[in-house]
Structures are given as C-alpha cells and as structure tokens.
C-alpha cells in the first residue's frame, strides 16, 4: 500500500470512528477549525466581501518569520474563490490574548497583494479564549480591525485599497501553521 493510499485509509478510519462516536452522542471529536471575516472594499476593489472558510488549511495562524519577527498572523483563506483570495490580520506581538494591538492587513487576490504599512492598523480582540484539547489546542476569538490608511499594492499599477468594517472571528488551532505566504 502506497503512502497516499494508507493516508486515505487512515482518514477514512478516523472519520468512521468519529462518525460512530458522534452518532453515539459523544460530541467534540476532531472539530475542524472554522473562521469568518467580512469587510467593505473601496478603491481598487469595490463592495463588501465576506467568507467563512473551514479547515486548518483555510483558518489559523500563519508563520510570518519571512516577513517580520515577533508577529502573529491570522489567516482567512476564501476557499470558494476561483482566483485565490485571502486576508491576513497581522499582530505585532509574539503572544496574543484579549486586548488591542497594533497591526497591519494584507489582502491577496489572483496573485496581487495589497498591504498596509506595519503598525498602521489597530486590531481589537475583545473575545479571546484558549481551549485545551487532547492533541491540538484551540483558540476561539472575535475581533475587528481599523485601518485608517489604505492598503498599498505591491505592484504600482493596481492602486490603493481601502478596507472598512473589518470584522473577524473563528475557532482555530492554537498553533502556528507553516503557511505559504504570498
């Protein structure tokens, strides 16, 4: 049996056992990370945007070591987008908890990147709860971002992007994933 086949078989077995457990009323088995984010775009893009991705590949903390030290990034990847769309809320802290933090926003779409300058946004996290699980702990949070300055495109031709009414939340793994930053 090849490795992918074994991995699929293992996933099936886990899914089956978990389904049986859920059917037996034993909840809380292998919860998938889930999150949501919404904002209103102005400038290079117009209109509201909102998505609610699920899974550890679409919701969670991203590794920002390639961009900056002592920075955490919460990633929201729109799995429904055909062109590839994601939002990153970055907090300039090595640890995170309830409160307000200086941060920045990064928006990617179809290979194009808009980013605010570091420390120009304010990230509010009034609800932040750490949950201990048997294998991977979870974090449940709700917050908002205020970016008074527009996001700047890394390519001069795309113009600026203003984002308002940025709200986000989620229930994600409390570990930093190795994430393919744009």
């Amino acid at each position: 049996m090849t490795w992918p086949t074994r991995r699929r078989a293992g996933r099936r077995a886990r899914a089956l056992s978990c389904s049986l457990l859920l059917a037996a009323g034993l909840s809380g088995c292998d919860d998938e990370p889930e999150c949501h984010i919404s904002a209103v775009f102005m400038g290079a893009l117009q209109g509201p945007a909102a998505w609610s991705p699920t899974g550890r590949d679409h919701c969670g903390f991203a590794d920002t070591q390639a961009l900056a030290q002592d920075t955490l990034a919460m990633a929201f990847v729109n799995e429904q987008s055909d062109v590839g769309e994601s939002l990153y809320v970055m907090i300039e802290q090595s640890s995170i908890g309830p409160g307000g933090f200086a941060g920045r926003m990064i928006y990617t779409r179809a290979g194009q990147v808009w980013a605010s300058y570091p420390g120009t946004c304010t990230v509010g996290l009034p609800d932040f709860e750490y949950e201990e699980w048997s294998l991977i702990d979870f974090v449940r949070f709700e917050g908002s971002v205020i970016c008074p300055e527009p996001l700047v495109s890394t390519t001069p031709d795309n113009g600026e992007l203003t984002m308002t009414n940025i709200e986000f939340g989620g229930h994600v793994h409390a570990e930093v994933l190795v994430y393919p930053f744009p």
């Binding site: 886990r14 056992s17 809380g28 088995c29 201990e132 699980w133």
Partner: peptide, 14 residues
C-alpha cells in the same frame, strides 16, 4: 473509547 483522546482531538474537559 478509552483511547479516543489519544487518537482524536477532543476537549480535555471530556
């Protein structure tokens, strides 16, 4: 059932 927490991610409260 006893070793489920070691195989599956479940809240420690459970």
């Amino acid at each position: 059932i006893g070793i489920i927490p070691a195989l599956h991610n479940v809240p420690k409260s459970k």
